[in-house]
Amino acid sequence: MLRNREVQILLLTMCLLNFTAIIAAAFFSLAATVLVFTISALLIGCSWIFTSWRYREIEKLSSYLRQISGGDYSLDVRDNHEGELSILKNNIYKVTIMLSEQRSLLQQDKIKLTNAISDISHQLKTPLTSMLMMADLLSDANLPAAKRTEFTHNIRIQLERIEWLVSSLLKLSKIDAGTVHFKEDVILVKRLLQKALEPVLIPMDIKEQNVLIDGDDRVSFVGDLNWTAEAVINILKNCVEHTQEGGRITISFSENALFTEIVITDNGKGIAKEDLPYIFKRFYKGKNAGEDSIGIGLAMAHSIITSQNGVIDVKSKNGEGTQFRIKFISR
């Protein structure tokens, strides 16, 4: 403590003042001199004890901060007494809790990133391996023209699959990072469905599937048209993929004082009961998933809808079709 300049100055000042008071008292009487000396000694002693206590407490806080910087957030320095030192302790404790929570979140993010990289590597490995094999076969000058055309077509399909995967992952990463600015426009559900149905009309026509739409043309909600259409497209693609030829997809929508609801139902092969809790999990593929399924479309739909104050639920029975229920809370 005596190494601190402020303490040295304080003690020197107090000693000079007390020495001056003792000399002044000596001009009056011996009793006054003794009294002043005794009071001065007591004051210096009390000041010394109090200053020593404060420095010990500050040293404890310094040690606590060193432990925090070392990654130990388990210590508790909360103090229920009054005073500036107690306030400082409580504020340090609050910062410690905040740092602990941030560290936990960062750890979770690292785990998610590791899992995502692992999933992406797994998803890319299969098409890349397939394309490498076909590229080697294409280098054979004696390869028949029919096989060369077939391999070239297959490579194109795999490249389109990789392009879609990368594009989808970029969109998901933007949503996860919170960098996507969702517009808050009034959207007519009828217009949303028209935009979402365009990319799936040809696959539906190939499979001779019918789509039935039922709802008031005035039904609307507040959201982002393009992003919401992206979500609905992925849901419709899932319905088309899991519905047999000649099947039916029904879309109904309605609005009340609390929310706007869109219900998309198919009469396809449905989702197994054990797969339902994980259907919106990224890269999850259920028992009835197709061979080309990646397991990212429904995860993207879920992220887009929930990021816009919406809710999406799924009900399904194996062999009896699937129903997706989307709700946008009124604002």
Rank of each mutant, 00 (worst) to 15 (best):
K190Q: 11
I251T: 04
I44N: 07
F253V: 00
V36N: 09
Y278R: 14
T13K: 11
F259S: 07
A25K: 07
I162D: 02
D76Q: 03
I87L: 10
S63F: 13
F328Q: 02
Q123G: 00
S29Q: 03
A231H: 10
N226D: 15
L132A: 13
V186I: 09
L61E: 08
K285R: 15
N267A: 10
L128H: 05
F151V: 02
V166P: 04
L137V: 01
L11V: 10
D205L: 07
A41W: 09
A32H: 14
E320P: 01
L17I: 10
L143W: 13
I249R: 02
T13G: 11
V180H: 04
P199C: 02
A116D: 01
K94C: 07
A231E: 05
V34G: 07
L193H: 04
A257N: 08
K174I: 01
D79S: 12
S252E: 01
I162Q: 12
E230R: 00
Q158F: 12
T179N: 08
I22K: 14
A299S: 15
F27P: 03
I68M: 10
A146N: 12
N142Y: 13
I175Q: 04
K171C: 04
K317S: 14
A116T: 08
S104C: 02
L85D: 05
I155C: 09
K317D: 15
I162F: 10
I187R: 03
D109Q: 02
I326M: 10
S69W: 05
L30P: 00
F324Q: 05
A24F: 15
L170I: 10
I329F: 15
K317T: 13
I262F: 07
D292G: 03
I162H: 06
W48K: 04
E208T: 05
E160T: 08
D205A: 03
V200R: 07
L169S: 05
I49S: 05
F221P: 03
L99V: 01
V311Y: 15
E57L: 09
K183T: 13
R54G: 00
K174D: 04
L12Y: 14
L10I: 03
